[in-house]
Amino acid sequence: MPEIELYLLITLMIVGALVAVHTRYLISAVISLAVVGMALAVAFLYMQAPDIAITQIVVEVLALVILIIAVSIGKEVVDIKGKWETLTIGVTVLFVVIFAIFAYRALADLPPFGSPLMTVSQRYVEEGLKQTGSANLVTSILLDFRAYDTLGEATILFTAILGAFAVLRNIGRKAK
């Protein structure tokens, strides 16, 4: 029964996210965010998704490095306070609570936790090995049944990296 561990992990993630939102120093917020990501990787392992857990760990380390670079260039590492603080927080909390109530009613329509529908993927499970020759069914879906998704993913990846490169480069920019 891995459910108890899952509830503990998601509680850890919620606490880590709250600390990341409310802590005063940005570097502490980045470290708390890394706690959330690592707990997410362990939760993926408990939910029988080892490929995603490995990907999540690699991506989490990369995200940590990127965010620490971004935090370290700024002089102001302290969280910024503004005016109209109370009113803004009040309105936002009201909006979030209304959103949560509607979501609670909508999520009741899903199949219960631990018993998915699996109407489409039943076919993948039955015929994945026979049709693609891959023992890992996630790989067979990623690279064979839904290879166009992976092509689109590669396109988005390439475009985003190209955009980041174009934004960050200094050639052709006026020196100040």
């Binding site: 998704a49 490929d51 990127i66 971004a70 990623l142 985003a160």
Partner: peptide, 30 residues
């Protein structure tokens, strides 16, 4: 088996997430 279809799609989403995070952080630094 657990459902392999969301796992395949979530791998795609994770990788796209790190790429867009890099783009967002580059814009913030600019």
């Amino acid at each position: 088996f657990v459902d392999p279809l969301p796992q395949a799609l979530v791998i795609t989403a994770i990788v796209i997430g790190i790429a867009t995070l890099a783009l967002i952080v580059a814009l913030c630094m600019r």
